[in-house]
């Protein structure tokens, strides 16, 4: 009989703490698949951020350090500058990357640090109980925007991919979703491409992945998937926004 489905080697066999219908588990798996694909498990170093992503070391069988809230890109920078032969990545949430850590992510991208960031955007603070995030959609109700996000009061959702694409240090910036098989397959390719950029010394790479948070959204998993499709993707369009070509003038590879 042919084996058609297998746990990636760098993904640990452990019960998940993610809620039913959460996309984080899928995204961790895509990262593990990329690590396996490039056979870099033994030289990969992960940086866990604060939030639902903190237990990175429980899922991925690679060396891991926990960074303070929002600071993962700076910690990655320190590691990568010392160990240029290692592959350094982080998985950050939207509060971590787009609120408290905006300074770190912008300057890390701008320096063109040769690291990879996987940015999970679920439009809420997950771990702390569904408070408003910088990426919360207009009108979206959260525990700290109980009347819905109001432009007058809270401003607009932050589009980090668009923001970081404008920086010359960025080598590869893309946005994906995993709410349906077609999107998942694209996400897999983009995450793989992001790691490939690092392997080829191209500079800073980031993939934002839109993610459902049924628990904090108060929706069933399938409804949550629909919300990603109908509300999030229109606000956060998918695709590759920046890609340096190897050997081109502006690439460092």
């Amino acid at each position: 009989m042919k084996k058609v489905f297998e746990r990636p080697k760098s993904l640990k066999d452990t019960p998940s703490h993610f809620c039913p219908g959460c996309h984080s588990g899928l995204i961790h798996r895509l990262v593990a698949e990329a690590i396996d694909y490039f056979k870099i498990q033994e030289r990969t170093i992960g940086v866990a951020s604060v939030g639902c992503s903190v237990f990175l070391y429980n899922y991925l069988d690679v060396d891991v350090i926990e960074a303070p809230h929002g600071r993962a890109p700076a910690v990655c920078t320190g590691i990568k500058r010392v160990r240029k032969q290692n592959i350094v990545f982080t998985i950050q949430g939207d509060g971590d990357l787009a609120a408290i850590g905006t300074s770190e992510i912008i300057h890390t991208a701008n320096r063109g640090e040769n690291i990879t960031v996987i940015f999970i955007n679920n439009a809420v603070y997950g771990m702390t109980g569904g408070q408003m995030a910088p990426t919360t959609l207009l009108g979206q109700r959260t525990t700290t925007s109980p009347y819905g996000r109001d432009v007058q009061q809270e401003g607009y959702p932050v589009r980090m991919v668009e923001l970081l694409s404008g920086l010359e240090g960025s080598a590869f910036i893309a946005r994906a979703a995993v709410n349906k098989p077609a999107n998942l397959m694209k996400a897999k390719k983009l995450i793989r491409r992001a790691f490939e950029m690092q392997i080829n010394n191209m500079g800073f790479s980031m993939v934002e992945v839109l993610s459902a948070c049924p628990t904090n959204w108060g929706l069933k998993p399938l409804e949550a998937n629909r919300r990603v499709e109908e509300e999030m993707i229109p606000c956060f369009p998918l695709g590759v926004f920046k890609e340096k070509i190897q050997g081109s003038e502006d690439s460092r590879g």
Binding site: A67, R71, A74, T77, G78, I79, V82, S103, E104, R111
Partner: peptide
């Protein structure tokens, strides 16, 4: 070696944390 003028004091202490975790005196 490497010298980085970081974007903030916060970033610099976290870069130190990363370099130290990677085993380097920093």
């Amino acid at each position: 070696g490497e010298f980085i003028q970081a974007e903030s004091e916060i970033a610099s202490i976290n870069m130190l944390m990363g370099a130290s975790a990677a085993g380097a005196r920093s």
